[in-house]
Simulated scan of single mutants.
Amino acid sequence: MTDPSALPDLPLPEQRQSAIGHDATRSAVLAQLADRRLPGAIMLHGPQGIGKATLAFELAVAILTATGDESQHRVSEQVAAMAHPNLSVLRRRPKDAKGYYSVIRVEDVRELRDGLHHTRGRTGHRIAILDAIDDCNPNAANALLKTLEEPPADTTFLLISHRPGQLLPTIRSRCHNLALRPLSNDQIADVVTASLPELDGAALDRAIQLSGGRPRRAFETLALGENSPVGALQLWLRQPEAAPIAAELQLADALGGDAQGPDMSFAREILNDWLATEMREAAMQPGARRRLASATDLWEKAGALLGEADSVNLDMKQTLVVIFDAIRKHCALNANPVEPA
């Protein structure tokens, strides 16, 4: 099964099978394996691009080896080739020669479910990896829920989620939930140099600075030009209310010129991260009702504007001008941490 989110010229998660970091999560699952008390479903959740899928395949190799009758080397080879009979992987399927479906469909989940009820191809546990469960449409999510409620014997689901809060609560409640965190700068450097050992120091430093603790984002940074406006966006977001309005217009012009380009794609991730962080910090700040309400409105407005721009092909530059202006006003409104009684 091909990976629709694969980055060019980099190994896939099933080929890596060795995640850097996430030691506590790894140890917790391996302890359950050693004690023969693996749960029926494990959800690995955290920001996109921090190595959740790589860790899932690493754990799959460990489980298949411990419960089967083949060496780890042999199991690892089969997993890398997606040829192990006790491993199933569900991702968005190819739609045609040019692209993939935008969601995991209910028929995809039913095919996975039916396959798991067949006689297993080899001794040992069976593993089903969903990468990512967030891609399931509502019908697919409901079909998956029924499978999790009555899972096949000796089968463990490894569910990868970038946005667990948006999943059905009943799905989350059926899983052993393990949160993964962004990596340190040193760990990001280890991941990047493992794939790109000849990378020069300046490029590596820039990738680390823009990664936000996500190896995937570090690799995406390397695909951008040295003069990409993404760095300017990050600087602007540190204090939007203090920057001149002309800076907003320049950023919108630089980023919105190619709505489907890598700069804009990266910028949208950074904006989403900033908005999510602003909401989280406001929710944790005592008495910050005004800030939380403003942040919530800002999140909804930005999401609606970007969604509308995508669906009817609106001018992305103008969309960004409106979003940047709303961010600046939000920050100016909440610059004073003391709210009226």
Score class of each variant (00 low, 15 high):
Ser5Tyr: 13
Leu10Arg: 13
Pro13Lys: 12
Glu14Gly: 11
Gln15Tyr: 08
Gln17Arg: 10
Gly21Asn: 09
Gly21Cys: 01
Asp23His: 11
Asp23Gln: 13
Thr25Trp: 01
Leu30Gln: 08
Ala31Lys: 04
Leu33Ser: 14
Arg36Thr: 11
Arg37Asp: 10
Pro39Ile: 12
Gly51Val: 07
Ala56Tyr: 01
Leu59Trp: 00
Ala60Trp: 00
Val61Thr: 13
Ala62Met: 03
Glu70Thr: 11
Ser71Cys: 00
His73Gln: 13
Val75His: 09
Met82Trp: 00
Asn86Lys: 07
Val89Lys: 03
Arg91Met: 11
Ala97Phe: 02
Lys98Asp: 08
Tyr100Arg: 04
Ile104His: 03
Ile104Glu: 01
Leu112Arg: 01
Asp114Gln: 12
Leu116Phe: 09
Arg122Val: 09
Thr123Cys: 11
Ile129Ala: 10
Asp134Arg: 09
Asp135Ile: 10
Pro138Met: 05
Asn139Cys: 04
Ala140Thr: 10
Ala141Thr: 05
Thr147Pro: 05
Pro151Ser: 05
Ala153Glu: 15
Asp154Arg: 02
Phe157His: 01
Leu158Arg: 05
His162Ala: 09
Gln166Ala: 14
Leu168Ile: 05
Pro169His: 10
Thr170Met: 14
Arg174Gly: 15
Arg174Ala: 14
Cys175Gly: 15
Leu180Ser: 13
Pro182Arg: 05
Leu183Cys: 11
Leu183Gly: 06
Ser184Asp: 08
Ile188Ser: 02
Ile188Ala: 06
Asp190Phe: 11
Asp190Ser: 14
Ala194Arg: 15
Pro197Met: 12
Glu198Trp: 05
Glu198Tyr: 04
Gly201Glu: 11
Gln209His: 13
Leu210Tyr: 01
Leu210Ile: 06
Arg214Tyr: 07
Arg216Asp: 15
Ala223Leu: 08
Gly225Tyr: 06
Asn227Pro: 04
Ala232Cys: 04
Trp236His: 07
Arg238Asp: 12
Arg238His: 10
Arg238Cys: 14
Ala242Met: 14
Leu249Tyr: 03
Gln250Trp: 08
Asp253Gly: 03
Ala254Asp: 04
Gly257Thr: 13
Ala259Asp: 02
Met264Pro: 01
Met264Val: 04
Ser265Trp: 00
Asp273Ile: 09
Thr277Val: 06
Glu281Asp: 13
Glu281Ala: 10
Ala283Phe: 03
Met284Arg: 14
Met284Val: 02
Ala288Cys: 07
Arg289Thr: 07
Ser294Tyr: 00
Ala295Lys: 09
Ala295Glu: 14
Asp297His: 14
Leu298Tyr: 00
Trp299Ser: 15
Leu305Trp: 03
Leu306Val: 04
Glu308Tyr: 02
Asp310Asn: 11
Asn313Tyr: 13
Asp315Cys: 08
Gln318Lys: 11
Leu320Pro: 00
Val321Trp: 01
Phe324Gln: 02
Phe324Ala: 06
Phe324Lys: 02
Phe324Cys: 00
His330Trp: 05
Cys331Leu: 05
